[in-house]
């Protein structure tokens, strides 16, 4: 195929260096959090967590509002508890419009790799759809799935699996993603 046609479909990776890189598990380490500052090298957003007693801080969102919801095995439907946490997340986001969010979907290790990527995406989308239904602007939200690649807990029984089947709302400063 012609070089021009090929270039429509395939983009040299080097050209993407300027883009937002939200993979907070990249080997470079840093994700949302740490000392305040706008986009560092490599396009990683860095936002101060702030004081957990300040209801407009990310720390407050993570610790008091709750940044994650959990799912049953193989499921991506929201539990009643999940809905109540997400309602609180939506309220916070509607009141603090200077933040965007990436919703991470995860799965436990009881499944094959590619299926779990899709399952994690389903979970992230369920959260995203709920937040949008509660009035959060869609352009403030983005989803990513990590499948079973980034478990929170590493033991191989249900006590760990339950915590790994999660969708986490990760905030960053900036009105849109």
């Amino acid at each position: 195929m012609s070089l021009a046609a090929k270039s429509l479909l395939l983009i040299a990776v080097l050209g993407l260096a300027a883009c937002n890189n939200p993979d907070r598990y990249g080997a470079g380490g840093a994700g949302a959090g740490g000392a305040g500052g706008a986009g560092g090298a490599g396009g990683i957003d860095t936002t101060g967590l702030g004081d957990p007693n300040n209801p407009t801080s990310i720390a407050y969102f993570n610790q008091t509002v709750g940044d994650r919801v959990l799912f049953a095995v193989d499921q991506s439907t929201l539990t009643p508890e999940g809905r109540s946490i997400l309602t609180a997340q939506a309220n916070w986001l509607n009141q603090n419009t200077g933040y965007a969010a990436i919703i991470e979907g995860h799965a436990d290790e009881q499944g094959t790799r590619e299926y779990n990527l899709a399952l994690g995406a389903r979970r992230a989308a369920a959260v995203q759809n709920f937040l949008i239904s509660q009035g959060v602007a869609a352009n403030r939200l983005r989803t990513i799935s990590y499948g079973k690649e980034r478990p929170l807990e590493v033991c191989s029984d249900e006590s760990c699996y339950a915590k790994n089947r999660r969708a986490v709302t990760v905030l960053s400063a900036g009105a849109g993603v």
């Binding site: 429509l8 479909l9 395939l10 983009i11 040299a12 990776v13 993407l16 990527l117 995406a121 983005r142 989803t143 990513i144 799935s145």
Partner: peptide, 12 residues
Amino acid sequence: NRQTLEEQPGTM
């Protein structure tokens, strides 16, 4: 040499 499939926004 590596090349990435063109991004369709909001997709994986």
